[in-house]
Structure formats: C-alpha cells, structure tokens
Nucleic acid binder design. Structure first.
Lengths: 110, 110
DNA sequence: ATAACGTGCAACCAAATGGTTGTAGAAAAG
DNA sequence: CTTTTCTACAACCATTTGGTTGCACGTTAT
C-alpha cells in the first residue's frame, strides 16, 4: 500500500479549512448535492464575495472542486481531501492505542 | 450510546488547533510521553513564550491538559478532544457514503 | 540568602483572516 | 443590442494569529 505522504502545509490548509462553521456547512451541503457559488451564497447571512472566499479556501485545501457549467460554476465535494484529514486523525488514534497497550504491558510486569 | 453534541465554536477551536504543524507535533509528542512546557520549548526553533501560547491553544481546544508538578507543569494528551474531531470527520464520511449508495440506487433504476 | 529555573502574562509587531463594497467581464435572457 | 445574472478580483478595514521581548513570581538548588 502506498501511504501517500501529506505535506505539512497541505495539512495546515486542510484543518484551517475545517476551522470555520460556514465552511463546514458548505462541505456538508456540496457533499450531498450540487450547488453553484451563488446558490451557496443565498444560504448565508453574508455577502456573495464572503462566500466566494470561503469556497476558495475549501478549494485550496482540496476539499471541493469547481467546474464551469454555462454561465455559472458548480461546486462539488472532493472525497480525497476529506480522507486525508481522516487519515491523519486515525494515525494519532493509532499512536494513542499503542501507548495504551505499552502502559498496560508495563503495569503487567509487576 | 450518548452522542454528545459538539458546539460549533468547540469545533472551530479543535480544527484551528490542528491547523499548525508545531501544534500537531506537540500533540503527537505528549500523546506518546510526558513533557514539561519548557521541555517542549527546547524542541523548537522559537521562543519559550511562543510554545507556551501553542500549548494554551491546544488546552483551550481540549486536546491537552496541564498539571502542576513541582516547579514545572507537565503537559499530557487528552484523548477525548481527538475523538471529537475524528467523530465529525466520520460523520462527513458517512454522509458521503450514503450519497454514493443513493447515486448507485438511481443508476440501478434503469 | 542568593542564584537559577520554569512559568505566566503583558505589550508589541507583522501577517493572515473574515468580512465589506465596488468594479469588470462572460454568458444567458429580454 | 441591452439587460440581467453569475462570477472574479481588488481595495479596504477590524480582528485574530503567531511570533517577539521583557518582567514578575513561585520553586528548587547552591
């Protein structure tokens, strides 16, 4: 199995992208259905430009993709980015579990 | 099973905490062993105060805890915070999978 | 008692973030 | 062709972030 290495700045961008509730909501929505940028903008109490910026942050973090369709641009979720974030947290969990096992082993030595 | 609800600001703090490579490294280290704040500070090419701030960010996000011991203060990993972050990403994955199943279902209707 | 160590905190600074408004271009509708 | 719609982008502003230095205070060591 090829364990694709994640660069640190890539991870910075990924977690930074998740660190805003509006962006988390956008990810949720575009995972379920398709939305144009203006379609998303209509959902939130902020300017179009603000939502546009949030989408740009998500795009830079590889969590969504944009695709031109007619006069608009549709936003889709990108499963790969999500998996990368999950993979890192899984790694931490693994480290944690190893540590728990080691401690149990030490305690058993008495 | 009680599915403890995570507040949005709690999630903001959690992901924000992960969005810095120094902080991710600190989490990794304190999960494996025990470190004082100054012990951590010695590891990075930045001032003690900077590391102290990173630890404070992690503490606010419930990813680490601090405990006074003698003249120093030891930093430990907090499994609960890590699990919360993982749980959210799992939720997204679940939504994604449901969607994949639904699309497969639609295609099968032909 | 004095010196050294570990920590917390405040003040400061540059850069990034999250928002705004305004302008401009490309595609669709009239 | 003109108007409307959707998008992109620049300029601007306030706040937060990530770093610094300096000072104060409690704890350990000499």
């Amino acid at each position: 199995m090829v364990v694709e290495k994640l660069s640190e700045t890539e991870l910075d961008r990924l977690f930074q992208a998740f660190a805003d509730s509006t962006r988390r909501d956008i990810v949720r929505r575009v995972t379920v259905g398709e939305y144009s940028v203006s379609g998303l903008a209509a959902l939130y109490a902020m300017s179009f430009a603000a939502v546009q910026k949030h989408v740009a942050v998500l795009e830079r973090a590889s969590l969504v993709t944009k695709e031109k369709r007619g006069r608009g641009q549709i936003v889709r979720g990108n499963h790969e980015g999500l998996q990368k974030a999950r993979r890192l947290l899984d790694e931490y969990e693994h480290i944690w579990r190893q540590r728990a096992v080691r401690i149990a082993g030490i305690l058993a030595e008495d």
